[in-house]
Protein backbone atom coordinates (compact mmCIF):
# COMPACT_ATOMS: atom_id res chain seq x y z
CA UNK A 1 0.00 0.00 0.00
CA UNK A 2 1.16 3.48 -0.75
CA UNK A 3 -0.14 7.00 -0.73
CA UNK A 4 0.50 9.94 -3.02
CA UNK A 5 2.11 13.08 -1.65
CA UNK A 6 2.67 16.52 -3.09
CA UNK A 7 5.69 18.63 -2.28
CA UNK A 8 4.09 22.08 -2.29
CA UNK A 9 7.44 23.83 -2.41
CA UNK A 10 7.96 22.30 -5.86
CA UNK A 11 4.49 22.08 -7.39
CA UNK A 12 3.84 24.56 -10.21
CA UNK A 13 0.41 23.27 -11.17
CA UNK A 14 1.40 21.74 -14.52
CA UNK A 15 -1.52 19.35 -14.12
CA UNK A 16 0.00 16.12 -15.47
CA UNK A 17 -0.85 14.20 -12.29
CA UNK A 18 -4.58 14.92 -12.65
CA UNK A 19 -4.48 13.91 -16.32
CA UNK A 20 -2.72 10.63 -15.60
CA UNK A 21 -4.31 9.73 -12.25
CA UNK A 22 -7.81 11.09 -12.60
CA UNK A 23 -9.08 8.83 -9.82
CA UNK A 24 -6.57 10.08 -7.27
CA UNK A 25 -5.92 13.69 -8.18
CA UNK A 26 -8.34 16.49 -9.03
CA UNK A 27 -7.41 20.07 -9.93
CA UNK A 28 -8.60 23.10 -8.01
CA UNK A 29 -9.80 26.24 -9.79
CA UNK A 30 -6.20 27.49 -10.18
CA UNK A 31 -4.98 24.25 -11.68
CA UNK A 32 -3.25 22.95 -8.56
CA UNK A 33 -3.74 19.31 -7.54
CA UNK A 34 -6.07 18.18 -4.80
CA UNK A 35 -5.36 14.65 -3.57
CA UNK A 36 -8.33 12.40 -2.97
CA UNK A 37 -6.33 10.60 -0.29
CA UNK A 38 -7.09 7.13 -1.58
CA UNK A 39 -4.67 4.25 -0.96
CA UNK A 40 -2.77 3.17 -4.06
CA UNK A 41 -3.20 -0.59 -4.39
CA UNK A 42 -0.45 -2.90 -5.60
CA UNK A 43 -2.08 -3.14 -9.02
CA UNK A 44 -2.16 0.64 -9.42
CA UNK A 45 1.45 1.11 -8.35
CA UNK A 46 3.05 0.98 -11.84
CA UNK A 47 0.72 3.72 -13.13
CA UNK A 48 1.27 5.80 -10.01
CA UNK A 49 5.04 5.44 -10.42
CA UNK A 50 4.80 6.53 -14.05
CA UNK A 51 2.82 9.58 -13.01
CA UNK A 52 5.42 10.41 -10.34
CA UNK A 53 8.14 10.31 -13.02
CA UNK A 54 6.04 12.40 -15.39
CA UNK A 55 5.69 15.33 -12.96
CA UNK A 56 7.69 18.17 -14.57
CA UNK A 57 8.48 19.73 -11.19
CA UNK A 58 9.26 16.43 -9.39
CA UNK A 59 6.62 17.46 -6.88
CA UNK A 60 4.54 14.26 -6.87
CA UNK A 61 5.75 11.50 -4.59
CA UNK A 62 4.75 8.05 -3.52
CA UNK A 63 4.96 7.40 0.19
CA UNK A 64 5.18 3.67 0.73
CA UNK A 65 5.75 3.82 4.49
CA UNK A 66 2.15 4.80 5.21
CA UNK A 67 0.03 1.83 6.23
CA UNK A 68 -3.31 3.58 6.40
CA UNK A 69 -4.32 6.26 8.84
Amino acid sequence: MARLEIDWTRCDGHGLCATLLGGDVALDEWGFPVLKGREITAGELPDARRAVLACPALALRLDKSVKGY
Binding site: H14, G15, L16, A18, T19, L20, A54, P56
Partner: peptide, 14 residues
Protein backbone atom coordinates in the same frame (compact mmCIF):
# COMPACT_ATOMS: atom_id res chain seq x y z
CA UNK B 1 7.41 19.48 -24.38
CA UNK B 2 8.71 21.44 -21.42
CA UNK B 3 7.07 24.56 -22.82
CA UNK B 4 3.76 22.84 -23.51
CA UNK B 5 0.90 23.81 -21.22
CA UNK B 6 -1.48 21.03 -22.22
CA UNK B 7 -0.92 18.24 -19.66
CA UNK B 8 -2.11 15.38 -21.88
CA UNK B 9 -0.01 16.50 -24.86
CA UNK B 10 2.95 17.19 -22.64
CA UNK B 11 2.89 13.66 -21.25
CA UNK B 12 3.09 12.12 -24.73
CA UNK B 13 5.80 14.50 -25.91
CA UNK B 14 7.76 13.66 -22.76
Amino acid sequence: SSGNRRPDRRFWLQ
